[in-house]
């Protein structure tokens, strides 16, 4: 029970401070899930993000379900998911009920401009951490650059790039392994 409450609270914290969509929650997840609670490793998070990218639904929800399940099975999955969406539910209902033109309020706009700068800083730091862990060789760096260019400059949907990266990963490794074996036989 204690662990379920912890899951709910941790993911509610993540949900309450994620400005700017699923990717912006990465620095928060690294802190909460990887560093302070050790519920998952940095590599696990990467896998969840990649899978969340090519399965339906919201990335934040997908990641919460993954981590919750790993920790506490079905109950954990449900509790973590409830946690991540809880702040949004409350905040949006309050705004809808009481505030008109919320995003036009000057101090809200200024605060958000500041928060956006912070999100860039936090996510940039998260990307550098992840790149160190996931770009293990030259081929991975090539995949990284190719996907960045492709997703920036073409209209091909993101999940197609993710699937392609998986296939290329298999091809590179299979070819690499057979080459090594060939070398060993010689």
């Amino acid at each position: 029970m204690k662990e379920l409450i912890e899951l709910f609270v941790a993911f509610a914290r993540v949900g309450a401070f994620t400005f700017g969509g699923g990717y912006a929650m990465l620095p928060m997840l690294q802190k909460e899930v990887v560093e302070s609670k050790h519920w998952a490793t940095e590599e696990d998070l990467m896998d969840y993000y990649a899978v969340g990218q090519c399965t339906p639904g919201i990335i934040a929800v997908n990641t919460a379900t993954f981590v919750g399940r790993k920790q506490k099975g079905l109950a954990g999955a449900l509790v973590a998911t409830a946690g991540v969406i809880f702040p949004s539910l409350v905040i949006i209902m309050i705004i809808t009920a009481f505030v008109n033109n919320f995003s036009d309020i000057p101090w809200v706009a200024h605060a958000l401009a500041g928060i956006r700068v912070c999100v860039v800083v936090l996510v940039l730091n998260a990307v550098i951490k992840l790149a160190k862990k996931s770009l293990v060789d030259a081929a991975a760096v090539v995949i990284f650059i190719a996907i960045m260019a492709g997703a920036l400059f073409t209209d091909i949907p993101t999940f197609a790039w993710v699937i392609a990266a998986g296939i290329v990963g298999i091809l590179i490794k299979v070819l690499g392994v057979s080459k090594e074996k060939g070398g060993a036989v010689k």
Binding site: G169, I170, I172
Partner: peptide, 8 residues
């Protein structure tokens, strides 16, 4: 491959 894509 997927982790490199995720980072990108």
């Amino acid at each position: 491959g997927l982790r490199a894509a995720s980072a990108a």
